[in-house]
Write a protein that binds this DNA or RNA. Structure first.
Length: 885
DNA sequence: GCGGACTGCTTACCT
DNA sequence: ACAGGTAAGCAGTCCGCG
């Protein structure tokens, strides 16, 4: 049945109707209340027990699925869907009687004797599953439970009592998502109380022509995914919240576990024009003068009591479908939750569901941007390392070019308008972070939800390995494949067959060719487009195809290893990763650069392209990580081994063509002065031999190598200075060095011919000499001289050695300042036995000048080496002079 | 008891 | 809590030295 509505096709979801419908359960057994946390390493399943509910309409327009949850009160799964017309959440409760379950290979007799009296047991069912590892159908028993905690999460859960279980550690709301083939972030409707998936009309003919080289099976799979990557994302109605609390200490965040001090200010900024600051009236505070940062449209509302203020905030938490905070899990919502209780509210009347480190909402979705920006994959692949420190200020300045408002005094000492302006800015930044670039972040989150099949609150809190896990689990479930246990894969596939170059690593990685120290004009960089995903796709790599069980495949060996690859089946990982790669490269990346479409449209393609890139970039790495449930060393190892083979063969081929390969790293080759024809020939050769595109990545006017790997500086044909790995560019290098280094790159930027170097060299010598003189004459400030190093753990957790930044951090602690992991410690090198001091405690006259001269040398040597200049030759004479002083 | 050679630890980077 | 490979600087240890 298909009804056409506008440009959408609507069709019935192909979910099977369950025969025996469970009656709605009003009450759960007692005693669960306190044991809602899983003991496992898995993030706890937060079980909702509040009485807040959204509407459950029988008929709706287009809705976007934001989240799949489990209601403990009704003991069933339910969906939170976003209605873009009303800007509200609606609920839809499961109508199939779906129940949590696990699989086991125990017989029903064995099971009966063990668990038949378990109060949470519903029934046993024999089902057929496909065992990918052994390439055969198997019969297993599905043990169905009455509620999620009876499967796992308690000491006496079924999974603790049954041996040989599978799929027993999937959280119930995820299990439900996969089984119902739900796509979070995607479009649905409710019709006569039924949930219906809504697909966008796709022009399949034009698509097929873009992918005409693809084998049938791969193309079919790609077309299934296409609508989900092409459907637009709504402009979500959302509100950002930030709270301020009185605090005794200037440098310490109030503790939400005790929530001793009052909440005095809350700002609310929404996508639909709300700009409000709620302020607690206090007798000793003056109104003050409205600062220019606090624009006239910001409404300030005063409250006589704190609880009245909090209750007003709660109205917005219920009202809005999406609530944004920066560290709301760890602070804002946690504090509100605790504080409301201290002021007499009952837990079940508070519209916040508090887990251990996570704050959820009963109706809407809470996005903690701190957690999202903390995600390494997002930091690196989506934002290209644009922000270094995960603080609101650092992120806002790099992504929005906007700063937090600086306050000199503690919260308690500010007047009303100063406080309002400070608090308002933080909420404004949070909202703007999600609206920038046509709602880039919200679009990205939604695309990641669709690809990973994860709910919004999970996507923003979990990392790339969880996203990929979820995507793959879904693919297993829809195909009827049993999800193997990590131990099943390891037992069958064994361990690695290569030795890593780095001590402590599990297998060998990529090749890096050491460059000769020199300056090279006219260099072209070729690189293999997404090499590892392409290898996984082209070589049919998957955990079941690497070292498969078929005797006849053993001849199909992976170069450099003892592994072989299946010739009989398409590998599941190969299929999925290959599809993501193809659709990204051949469609979205292409479209994001298409000048014939609008910028708005290009931006959309860019987002999809970025989301796919995040998955692809991590798709090989997860298989080499023990934390990944489908961990498979031979798979990761085969990927890098084939990568080494490809780059080695390509270098050899280039040399046969009399090309000079001056440097190579993993998937890239730097070629000296090739002709266009030579480039073309090499590309053709590589593409026909390996089936992987070899693209021109960059063209350098010149590039200087210091002789070190992963360490060079060049000027591109578009005039941009491209610096990799040099000390002068690292974030922990003192500002005075970075500045001098940057001055040097400005000189190099102007170099067009080898002759220009004469002049450039003289200028560079001058820069270095100036830098040296300024240092010697103590012209630099302490901030200029500071090294800024991130603390990765609490200072007392460094037991093997005490690095300098830890020494500095401990000095700060002694002075009563709080330091924690993630903080960046600024310190200078001083004379004396300890050798370092935090900038806050140091004096300019105790700086260890000799140490800093060493740093000038090592920073500039990385470039001087290539130019054939000796550092001593620049400052040699000066150095003597210095000593005689 | 002291200093250079060496290894290991830590951070930040590259692909 | 995606991988391995590399640079740099310092901390700590070992060993030889009549």
């Amino acid at each position: 049945m298909a009804i056409t509505l506008d440009k959408f096709i609507i069709k019935e979801d192909k979910r099977e109707e369950k025969k025996d419908k469970e009656e709605l359960k009003e009450y759960l057994e007692e005693g669960i209340e306190e044991s809602i946390y899983e003991e496992e390493e898995e993030p706890e399943e937060v079980i909702e027990r509040t009485s807040f509910e959204a509407e459950t309409p029988k008929n709706t327009g287009i809705l976007y699925l934001l989240s799949v949850s489990y209601s403990a009160i009704r003991n069933k799964a339910f969906l939170k869907l976003y209605d873009p017309e009303k800007g509200k959440i609606v609920f839809w409760y499961d109508d199939t009687g779906h129940k949590p379950y696990l699989f086991t290979n125990q017989s029903i007799e064995q099971l009966s004797s063990k668990v038949i009296s378990h109060p949470g047991l519903e029934k046993f069912e024999e089902v057929e599953k496909y065992d990918l590892l052994y390439d055969r159908k198997i019969k297993v028993i599905k043990v169905i439970a009455k509620d999620p905690l009876s499967i796992g999460g308690r000491r006496d859960s079924l999974r603790e009592m049954i041996e040989n279980t599978w799929e027993d550690n999937i959280r119930y709301h995820e299990c439900y998502t996969y089984d119902m083939n739900l796509i979070p972030g995607y479009t649905y409707m409710i019709k006569d109380g039924k949930l219906i998936r809504v697909d966008q009309q796709i022009n399949y003919e034009s698509l097929k022509s873009s992918f005409k080289d693809l084998p049938e099976e791969r193309l079919k799979y790609l077309l299934e995914w296409f609508p989900l990557l092409s459907t637009p994302v709504p402009n979500y109605r959302r509100i950002a919240i930030d709270i301020e609390v009185i605090s005794e200490y200037v440098d310490r965040i109030p503790d939400p576990h005790t929530a001793k001090n009052p909440i005095v200010c809350v700002s609310l900024v929404s996508s639909d024009g709300l700009n409000k600051v709620l302020m607690l009236k206090r007798s000793d505070v003056r109104e003050g003068i409205r600062p220019p940062e606090l624009s006239e449209n910001v409404e300030i509302e005063y409250f006589d009591s704190e609880i009245a203020l909090i209750k007003e905030v709660f109205k917005y938490l219920i009202e809005y479908p999406i609530v944004l905070t920066f560290n709301g899990d760890g602070f804002d919502l946690h504090y509100l939750w605790k504080r409301a209780q201290l002021l007499g509210m009952r837990k079940e009347d508070i519209p916040i569901i508090m887990g251990r480190d996570i704050a959820l909402l009963p109706i809407g979705i809470h996005i903690d941007l701190y957690k999202f920006f903390h995600n390494h994959a997002i930091q690196v692949y989506a934002f290209g390392n644009a922000y270094r420190e995960v603080t609101l200020d650092a992120i806002a300045s790099s992504l929005l070019n906007m700063k937090k408002i600086q306050i000199e005094r503690s919260i308690a000492e500010l007047d009303y308008l100063q406080l309002a302006s400070y608090c308002y800015r933080d909420a404004l930044i949070a909202l703007k972070l999600t609206s920038e670039n046509s709602n880039l972040i919200m679009n990205l989150i939604t695309m990641i939800m669709r690809i990973s099949r994860m709910s919004m609150e999970d996507v923003v809190r979990q990392g790339i390995s969880k996203w990929i896990k979820s995507m793959l689990y879904h693919e297993h479930r829809v195909r009827g494949y049993l999800i193997p246990r990590q131990s099943d894969i390891e037992a069958l596939k064994g361990i690695a067959s290569t030795t890593a170059i780095i001590k402590g690593k599990k297998y060998m990685g990529a090749i890096v060719i050491r460059p000769e120290s020199d300056v090279y004009f006219n260099v072209v960089v070729l690189d293999f487009a997404s090499l590892y995903p392409s290898i996984i796709s082209r070589w049919n790599l998957s955990y079941e195809t690497v070292r498969c069980i078929h005797e006849e495949c053993k001849s199909n060996v992976v170069p450099d290893t003892k592994h072989w690859i299946c010739k009989k089946r398409i590998g599941l990982m190969s299929l999925i990763i290959g599809m993501l790669r193809d659709v990204r490269v051949k469609w979205f990346k292409h479209k994001s650069k298409d000048p014939s479409i609008s910028e708005e449209e290009r931006n959309w393609y860019k987002v999809v392209q970025q989301a796919l890139k995040v998955f692809l970039n991590a798709s090989y790495g997860v298989f080499g990580s023990e934390v990944f449930p489908l961990y498979c060393l031979p798979l990761a190892e085969s990927t890098t081994a084939i990568g080494r083979y490809i780059i080695r063969e390509t270098i050899n081929r280039a040399r046969e063509m009399s090309l000079r390969v001056i440097y190579a790293d993993t998937d890239s080759l730097f070629i000296y002065k090739p002709t266009e024809d030579q480039i073309y020939q090499l590309q053709e050769w590589a593409e026909s031999k390996f089936g992987i595109d070899l693209e021109v990545d960059k063209r350098y006017t010149f590039v200087t190598f210091s002789g070190r790997k992963k360490n060079y500086l060049g000027v591109l044909d578009n005039g941009i200075v491209d610096i990799k790995g040099l000390v002068g560019k690292k974030r922990n290098t003192p500002v005075f060095l970075k500045q001098a280094f940057s001055d040097m790159t400005q000189i190099l930027k102007e170099v067009k011919t080898p002759e220009d170097f004469k002049y450039a060299k003289e200028k560079i010598k001058e820069i270095i000499q100036n830098c040296y003189n300024n240092l010697k004459n103590r012209k630099y400030t302490l901030d200029d001289l500071a090294f800024k190093v991130m603390l990765s753990r609490p200072p007392d957790k460094y037991v093997k050695t005490t690095p300098q930044h830890v020494k500095a951090a401990r000095q700060l602690q002694d002075k009563g300042k709080e330091v924690k992991p993630g903080d960046i410690i600024s310190f200078v090198k001083v004379q004396g036995p300890i050798g370092v001091k935090p900038v806050q405690l140091a004096r300019l006259d105790e700086i260890d000048i000799e140490k800093y001269i060493g740093h000038i040398q090592s920073t500039f040597d990385q470039v001087l080496d290539a130019l054939g200049i000796e550092f001593e030759e620049i400052i040699g004479a000066k150095k003597l002079e210095f000593f005689t002083n």
